[in-house]
Amino acid sequence: MIPRHVLISFALLLAGIFVLGLYMLSLKHGAETATLNPGDSVVLAPPGSTTSEAVTLYVAYDDLGVLRKRTTTAALPGEPPARARAILRTLLHEYLQGSSPHPIGAGSDVSDIYIVNQSLAVIDLNTAFADGHRSGVWEETLTVDSMIATLSANMPEVKQVKILVDGKERETLAGHADLITVYDTGVVNQLVQALQ
């Protein structure tokens, strides 16, 4: 003989399951309607506030062996990591053009950037960046210096830079430029001044 209060509890649970099931179905139906109706779609702004701002780039010129300062505009998010990534992607966009003064491998990208204690930027390059990079002291040095100088010019609070490849530490970019070290932006900026 099952006690009466157990039966009542069981009935209430079943009723609850049934009601929740109906509610879930209605939510699913609503979501499908919103997705499938193109007339209702709207252009969404990217997360966070993004404004078009002036960006200072230090662009490497292989034939002259110099880094030239150039100003352009780009949509920059407010969040420091996303902002740093957008700045470097603007620089890489220059290098990925057909007429680039310092070509880099197709598919090169900055996977992510982490800002630690507001002053250390950890740049995570994708594998295509390192694997597709031309090997040579000068070629690799120009790339590293150009990235660090560009980041430092737009985010002066960044004092140190560490470069990873695909989330892991790597000895060199393509056989020469040191990726083990943590770069001091002040030292790199001094060098960049001499290379202009």
Partner: peptide, 10 residues
């Protein structure tokens, strides 16, 4: 002549 980040100089 210039400073550069070349392994294993450091």
């Amino acid at each position: 002549m210039m400073p550069a980040p070349v392994r294993p100089l450091n």
